[in-house]
Design a protein around this nucleic acid. Structure first.
Lengths: 231, 231, 231, 231
DNA sequence: TATGAATGAGTGTTCATTCAT
DNA sequence: TATGAATGAACACTCATTCAT
């Protein structure tokens, strides 16, 4: 298998390092204090690791490459993470948690259930589908069986909460008469399935056949809520 | 990462060794001819490789383990496959092709479109979801980005054909008035999404929360076709 | 290191197999008897092995290639030779012996010593320099330290006899007054050295700078015998 | 082939570790700086590799043995050389270059041409014949055909320059009347041949029949320049 | 705290040798 | 006698981890 160093830049939510505050021209310990510097390094490592893990998978990723991409020495990684495995596990947590936080910070619960779900889908589209985070989801699907702790974490923090939230929305929709099919509440997975498929499709088949995820999700919601009168 | 050799038995479609000719209760199989033996060995390697690749992913799988599981010497693998990569690529072909063949051997095209799709879903449930083949699908999702040839093959042989077949069925359903939502034909992925989600769920989360895939697919079809009067 | 199968044909003194006697169109055991067939196979193996050993050296030569080149199965080699090492050792004997025999079948001892030596040099030029046999000499130089038995054999059969023969000629030349330098008899190597250098040169540097070995040997003999009046 | 690790000590020109600074009788060398240590290690690897390659040839040499002999871990070799092949190629350069430099640092160009050549021969005797460097020459002859880059390098740096230098000396000798045979200038190889033969002889046949290389070279020079009056 | 040279266990691949046919 | 599939020891090369500086 060929190794072509992926050179994609990384505009990451975890990056806390872009600080204009550092006084230029200082060789020893610039402006920020020790703790900040450490946090920056750690963030750089996390970013680099995510890129590499996504590009090659856990086993095929070399710490050398992560270090190079993060701009630190290989040994430095071990000052922040116990080993490669726990780096991967922590990485997933570090990246996933803020996303979940943002997605669950639901918009004002005003309006129809469909509006709520559409808002949610819009966020998901923007934050996940076709982004690094989407790739991370695929990575979790890929490595889950070898990292039960990751699968557990992901199930606990993302899947089960997502399913519960969707179920609550569906039940609300049924109560309000927006959703006809009462059985849907038993399988919120059905509501989420096209979004997941979109995530995977973008990773694997986008270059064979592009997919208009937004439009697909709209069609799906039409199916569930009945066609919209106007847009 | 700990390495516990997964010892799952393997009831495989690729196994050609179930010879009815062998006297039952015989320990030493009398051997048959050279070509047959070679085919058996190759099948054993394919089966073993599939188990190992599914359990560990491509990079973390050791040829030593495949050989041990297949009951052959390591060198023997190289009599059948050029190297680890091409073994993986051929493996996918070898396992996928007959499944596709079987799934596309559509049941008697009589009855309603819903009956057709239900028959198809039933096959998929039996042949893929929760089986080794399902795990293979997850494996392809996992390794696809690193094996463009595999992703290409899978798209060409499975995805595009599956999408096309589903679209044809959907259009038929629309024509016959069984399906109301005309836009569905533009996104057959929606029809398939829950089945794919079921495949992944069984691999990753079954132990956290079992999923009645059959029931879920029924609910999904009810959503698309309208609730069934009787079952 | 790349492996380009050397495809040079092999017009070898050891080949005894080119027999027009075999009745065409016979599948089982053609004309010649069993022993002859075996001898042919053995000769084919020896020829093929020589080519391969010369092209790659002992360690880098694969028995597979020898077998392929000889047109026999790999196992067949083991019917003729105990193992790779002893094949190499026997090979050297098999190829060297007839050459020595031919070279030592000295031409009629008439004429001057210089004539004798020139005749000898002519043979050497024709039979060794720039030929497969020359390459074999280089091979012996190359593998000698790892094959003491080969070095021993070569010293015993070729070097010591060659040196002795040269010394005898030199002494005759001194006696007859053809050679002035009496000390030359103590170092017959000096007489042979340019011929050896020519052998090596053709193997290694011919493509950088071609060497007219014949002319060089003449100049060398002029040095020893004094310039010739006419040619 | 039996594998007996040759344990010959190695007084090498490449060894840079003989540090006069180290307190005598000290077991643990105090280390000095990083760069020095790296250079020492590299030199140790080069020395060890030369020993092993000379003893076994390229293909039969194991990197494990080189590492063991050099007192480093196997991986360390790869910090200094890309792979086995390039190690061999660099090795030849590293060892040959300083020898050439020393040999071409000609002695005071005073005196007769014969004196010059004798000085040169003396150096060659001391520096090459019967030394590790001589063995290396034999190794180059052995592996040249499989390492064109080595053969090229050797031709360019050693052979062609040596031939040119010898030709210049011969022509000077002819001009001054020291050398009678005018054709010799066309084949400087003749002048060098006995020295090369001596190199090979010491490697292969010394134990069968010792050769007094110094005396042989003197006889050869007598042949070319005419016998010396006194020594 | 940060470095990166050094380590050595681990793995894909090769190939001499065997042996059932 | 001849075959060539099968074997498994051997080896080049990699890379996670350590540790002296």
């Amino acid at each position: 298998m060929t190794r072509k160093p992926t050179q994609t830049a990384l505009p990451s939510a975890t990056r806390a390092s872009a600080k204009g505050a550092a006084p230029a021209g200082n060789v020893e310990v610039p402006a920020s204090n020790r703790a900040t510097r450490a946090a920056e390094r750690r963030a750089a490592i996390v970013d680099a690791a995510m890129e590499e893990f996504i590009a090659r998978g856990f086993a095929a990723t070399r710490l050398d490459d992560i270090a190079k991409r993060a701009g630190v020495a290989k040994g430095t990684i071990y000052l922040h993470f116990r080993d490669k495995e726990s780096m991967f596990e922590e990485l997933v947590r570090i990246v996933i948690v803020p996303v979940v936080a943002r997605l669950t910070a639901l918009p004002p619960p005003a309006g129809s259930v469909r509006d709520l779900i559409e808002a949610f889908a819009g966020n998901f589209l923007k934050e996940v589908i076709g982004t690094r985070r989407g790739d991370l989801v695929r990575l979790i699907v890929a490595e889950g069986p070898r990292f039960p702790s990751v699968a557990d974490f992901y199930y606990r923090e993302v899947v089960s909460r997502g399913i519960a939230a969707m179920r609550a929305l569906i039940e609300l929709g049924i109560t309000r008469g927006e959703i006809r099919d009462k059985e849907l509440a038993r399988y919120p997975q059905i509501l989420v399935a096209p979004a997941m498929i979109a995530v995977i499709w973008q990773s694997l088949f986008a270059r064979h056949a592009p997919l208009d995820a937004q439009d697909m999700l709209r069609v799906h919601l039409d199916l569930i809520f009945g066609e919209r009168r106007t847009t």
